[in-house]
Amino acid sequence: MPFNLSRRAFALGASATALAACSPATESSEANFVNVYTARHYDADRALYAGFEEATGIAVRALTGSAEQLLERIRAEGDATEADLFVSADAGNLWRVKEAGLFQNVVTPSLEQNVPAHLRDADGAFWGFAKRARVIVYNKARVQPADVATYDALATARFRNALVMRSSTNMYQLSTLASRIERLGAENARAWAAGVRANFVRDPQGADTDQIKAVAAGEAQATLCNHYYFLRLSQSEDPADRAAIANVGLVFPDQAGAGTHVNISGGGVTLHAQRRDNAVRFLEYLVSDEAQTMLAPLNSEFPIRPAIAPSPELAALGTFREEDIPLDALGRHQAEAARIFEAVGWR
C-alpha cells in the first residue's frame, strides 16, 4: 500500500518533470544573448535586462549567486566559461575577480565619459553603475544629528553601551573598515573598530534592516547601514515598518572630513567571454540615461552619474560629499579589515 501511494507520488513528479521539460524555460532560443553572472538579485535588475533587450534585441541570461561562489564557478569553468559579464554589489568582490585574472580590460568612450574616475577600475577591468552610501541611523529621541556627524563619534564614550552593529562577515562592514585603512592606516582602523566594539549593546545579529529596527525600538541609539535600507523601510507595505522609521534619522557622516563611505555596484567583462561585444554593450547600457534613470526609483541606489537626478525619495535624503579613494583599496585591504574585526572581537 505505501508503495502504491509513493508510485502515485512519483507519477505526479514525473508529469511535473515532463511539464518542465516542455516549458520554454532554460535554454534561450535566440542566437543573440549575453550571459551574466551576478551577485545582485534585485527585481530592478530584471527590469534592466528587459530594457536592454528592448533597446538592442540582445537577451540577458542571468545566473544569480554569491560573488565568492560565482568567482569559483568562473575559475572552474576556465576558458569554457558561460559567463560574459560578472556583476557584483561590492567593489572588493570585483577587485578579487580582477586579481584572479578573470576580467579583461575594456575601455570605451561612453564608459569613460559616463563613469566618474573614482567609481571605476583604473585599468578598465570593472565599471561602477550604481552607488550606495554607508550612513549612520540614529534614534531621534536620544541622539542629536550632531552627535553622529562622524564615523569616529561611534567609537567614543558618548555611545557606551548604545550601538548595535551587523556582523563583520558582511562585505559592507568590511569595505567601510578597508576604506579607513586606506585613508588613515591599520592602527587607526584597529583603534576605531575596538572603540565601536566596546560600545555594543549585544553581539552582532541579523542584517542592516534588523539594526535599524533595533535603533527605532530604542534597544540602541545608533547603527551603521546602507542608505537604501532606511528608504525601503519608510516605503514598506508593513505599517509597523513605517511606524518604526518615524523614530529614526539618517546622517551622511564625515561631511566636514573625508566624506561618506560609498561602495559601488559594478561589472566587468570576463576574460574568456564568448560574446564580448554584447557584454560591452550591456555595460554601456547600464550607465546610459535610460538605465540610470530607471535604477534609482526601482532600487533606491544612487545613479553613478552625477548629472542624473536621483528619484524624489533619494533626493529627500539630501546631497552629500562622498569619499574619494581608489576603489581597489576596498579589495586590497579587505583581508586585513577582517583580521582587525576578528582581533577586536567584532565577528
Binding site: S66, E68, R96, S167, S168, T169, M171, L174, D203, P204, Q205, G206, A207, Q334, A335, A338, R339, F341, E342, R347
Partner: peptide, 20 residues
C-alpha cells in the same frame, strides 16, 4: 548566521568571504 553565532559552518564562510 542570522542569529550571529560562530559555528563551524559560519566560520567556513567567514574564512572564505571575509578573510578571502
Amino acid at each position: 548566521q542570522h542569529f550571529g553565532l560562530t559555528t563551524l559552518s559560519t566560520a567556513i564562510f567567514r574564512a572564505w568571504y571575509a578573510h578571502q
